[in-house]
Simulated assay, not measured.
Amino acid sequence: MNSQPRPRVSVLGAGSWGTALAVLATTRADTLLWARNPELARTISRDHANPRYLPDTALPAALQATADFQQAINHACSAEDDNALIILGVPVVGLSGLCSALAQALSQTPPRGKLSIVWTCKGFQPDTGQLPQQIAMQAFKALPELGLGVLSGPSFAREVAQGLPVALTVATAHDWTARATITALHGTNARIYTSTDIVGVEVGGALKNVMAIACGISDGLALGTNARAALITRGLAEMQRLGLALGGQAPTFAGLTGLGDLVLTATGDLSRNRQVGIAIAQGKKLDDILAGGLTAEGVRCARAALTLGRQHSVSLPITEAVCKVLFDGMAPMQAVSGLLARDAGPESPSVYL
């Protein structure tokens, strides 16, 4: 009896999350990781390590990397069944350029079978306010046969790369994209759920980073766990309000990509967004924090989120307070006082099931 061929997965982007997903996929799929830096690609293939992005983490010997972009594309496109998957492991600011390069490559090297592309970035495009799915759909509009989706959920790259359990959601309108993602990632150390609510998943992934900065500021000011719980709960309400206004579905925000991701990012010590908030509360300047190498998507997308809220007449008081602290020089305690001084009102359930 002939055995089924192993799925073919190409991961584009050898940062911490791209590498972690490549590690996860390697156990179930023939996986190739593309790194922009040739030396990094050689180090991953030769030394089974990514010292820049995942220090002190051993990578599986089966994982190979390349700096040849076309080779990475050909790897996935050569699959003859529907289990061909390309994972885009870059931040929002790099998504447009990568999608454009990928679309051009695919127009010259069409896949043999159905090809799925999923992205993993969380946030809004800072200058346009676009969600990742809007960026991707615009880039691939000439290739309607592709299956597109977003892979998201509460996850720290280091833990995934170390083989610790994780649960993620793939949101897509294409059944074969959900199947390809599950085939490549589900059942080893990961549980993959499916959704069709791409907008809700992406809004949750974007705004939870802003809320994590707020929780970091609160923790840095030693305001206690009561304050943190309040910020998480009311932050979830903001996430849902904006998500519904943009076309998302309410139940999504009670799931992994809403509440789950918010709790992890707002409380976990590995959260870069929370660490930015703590540093701000300790009196450090944002420019100095970013210059020190600590980057966080919440900083990049906070203004875009606030602009979208105003455009859709959605109240985002926590997001607005974070923006005032990050960009307008407001003292953190003054921002807290402003939130506490808001008019009292009824608490509507933040999540409608």
Results as ranks from 00 to 15, higher is better:
L12R: 03
A291K: 14
N50K: 08
S78C: 03
F140W: 13
R300C: 09
G255A: 15
R112F: 14
P111D: 08
M137K: 12
G187N: 03
I182S: 10
V322L: 11
T257R: 02
L168A: 06
I318M: 03
P5R: 02
A230Q: 04
T26L: 00
A58K: 13
M211L: 15
P132E: 05
L339T: 01
T188I: 08
K284N: 14
V166R: 04
E297C: 12
H48C: 14
L32E: 06
D81S: 13
I318R: 00
M211K: 03
M333I: 15
L244E: 07
T27G: 12
E145S: 12
V201T: 11
G235Y: 05
A79G: 12
S3F: 10
G94Q: 12
A184L: 11
A245E: 02
A237R: 06
E320P: 07
E347Y: 08
A237V: 08
S195I: 03
L164Q: 15
S313D: 15
Q282K: 13
L185D: 11
I280W: 01
K114P: 14
A304V: 07
C215L: 02
P55W: 13
A279Y: 04
L246P: 02
Q311P: 01
G338H: 00
P38H: 09
I135E: 10
R8V: 13
L24K: 02
L98M: 13
Q134V: 02
G13F: 01
D343W: 05
A237S: 14
L308G: 11
D287W: 00
G163E: 05
N209Y: 07
T26H: 08
L95S: 05
E159W: 07
R228N: 01
L32H: 05
L246R: 02
A254P: 02
Q240D: 09
T169R: 07
A180E: 03
K284W: 07
L264R: 04
P349G: 09
S218W: 01
F140E: 04
L54K: 09
R52S: 15
T26I: 07
L146K: 04
A72P: 01
S3K: 08
H186G: 07
D175M: 05
N209D: 06
V325Q: 00
L164H: 14
E320Y: 07
P55N: 11
E80G: 12
R28E: 09
A250E: 05
A61T: 14
I213N: 08
A103F: 08
R36D: 07
V166Y: 01
A227R: 00
Y352D: 13
G268C: 12
G345Q: 14
A65Q: 06
W34S: 02
E202V: 05
T120I: 15
S107L: 08
L262N: 03
A14L: 03
P154E: 06
L326C: 03
P110G: 10
G204W: 03
A167L: 03
D82N: 13
I198G: 01
A230V: 09
A167N: 07
A344K: 09
G255Y: 05
A49H: 12
A341T: 13
G298S: 11
T169L: 12
L306G: 04
T27Q: 10
